[in-house]
């Protein structure tokens, strides 16, 4: 009898706990739809190795949000190396997780255009563009090329004998956009692809490659020490800073191209509107804080915050990038 009552008593407790749990659960979800977001830990995915551009950007965002106390929940950066597997995971695993945001760049559009990845910006929810890195065409200090025009002339008359070097991924897009616009058949140019801009600087310093395509922030040290010389820069207007203000843009140098590598924050495809709104507002506040401004100055990133029009921007970019990829000879329908 006693044992029975005991069991009954326990049953009641369990039922009560269960009910309370369900109650709290429903209350929690009701709150989640509204003002309580994010409510729990945010997962911040950087789809590349630690130390890469994605990783640095994400950690800079976390640092700024924490120090400026803009987000109260814990934020964990997760490195999912590789932009292709990374975006695949974002789509396949986190599409419906409102507590995941990630960072992407032109790489995402490039991977889709080359057929490397089946996913692109319509498969996730772009939130806001944060920063842009600008490109430059560099030569060794003692190079005979004085202007971008000199280099283009040689690339036209002797494409085989004018090898270039640069990164294998995004950098190739700038190279393709620039030189195809200049009227060169870029599939004839010798382009030695390296892991990134800095890595490809060595062969230019040594002399094997005639010019380097790289983001400017990557090789700033070599520019400052006058080992490399900058022929032209990619943004629409001249850049600031003592070393950069006298350098012509591509357009001024005679090629009507403007290029940058932008990084943007995205959420899963199923991210609710209130969460998107929350992040657009929070990031909008963040980019104005001194912490963020100080950081992008140190990393030499260009501030290019864009929240509302980002979908349209990415649509347009995808068209341009697909076109460049075709000119590069890298699009998916190529046959040998």
């Amino acid at each position: 009898m006693k044992a029975f009552r005991n069991r009954e008593y326990r049953l009641w407790i369990v039922t009560a706990l269960l009910l309370a749990g369900i109650g709290m659960g429903t209350a929690g979800s009701a709150l989640a739809a509204g003002q309580d977001y994010p409510g729990k830990t945010m997962l911040m995915i950087a789809p590349s190795k630690p130390g890469s551009g994605f990783d640095t950007t994400m950690r800079a965002v976390v640092t700024a949000l924490t120090q400026e106390k803009l987000v109260q929940v814990p934020m964990t950066v997760m490195n999912m190396a590789g932009s292709v597997p990374g975006t695949a995971q974002i789509v396949l695993r986190y599409s419906n997780d409102p507590n995941m945001i990630a960072v992407m760049s032109t790489t995402g559009s490039l991977n889709y255009a080359t057929g490397l990845s089946p996913y692109y910006h319509k498969d996730w929810r772009p939130i806001a563009r944060l920063i842009s890195a600008y490109y430059g065409i560099f030569v060794r200090q003692d190079s005979p090329y004085k202007t971008l025009g000199d280099l283009i002339k040689d690339l036209k008359s002797n494409p085989g004998g004018t090898p270039l070097s640069g990164g294998y991924s995004d950098d190739r897009l700038c190279y393709g956009a620039l030189f195809s616009k200049a009227g060169i058949d870029i599939t004839k140019i010798n382009y030695a692809a390296f892991a990134g801009g800095v890595e490809s600087a060595g062969v230019v310093l040594e002399g094997s490659a005639k010019a380097l395509v790289s983001t400017i922030d990557d090789v700033m040290g070599l520019l400052e020490s006058k080992q490399l010389r900058l022929l032209a820069v990619s943004p629409g207007k001249r850049m600031e800073g003592p070393l950069l203000k006298d350098i012509p843009t591509f357009r001024e140098a005679g090629v009507d191209v403007e290029w940058d590598n932008f990084r943007y924050i995205l959420g899963g495809k199923g991210m609710p509107d209130h969460a998107v709104k929350y992040w657009r507002e929070t990031l909008g506040k963040m980019v104005k804080t001194p912490t963020w401004q100080d950081m992008i100055k140190k990393y030499r990133w260009g501030d290019s915050f864009l929240a509302e029009g980002i979908d349209k921007f990415l649509d347009e970019k995808q068209v341009v990038i697909t076109d460049v990829v075709k000119k590069l000879g890298m699009d998916k329908k190529q046959k040998k």
Partner: peptide, 8 residues
Amino acid sequence: NMPNPNIQ
């Protein structure tokens, strides 16, 4: 039989 990109 893999298609190769048209790169120099």
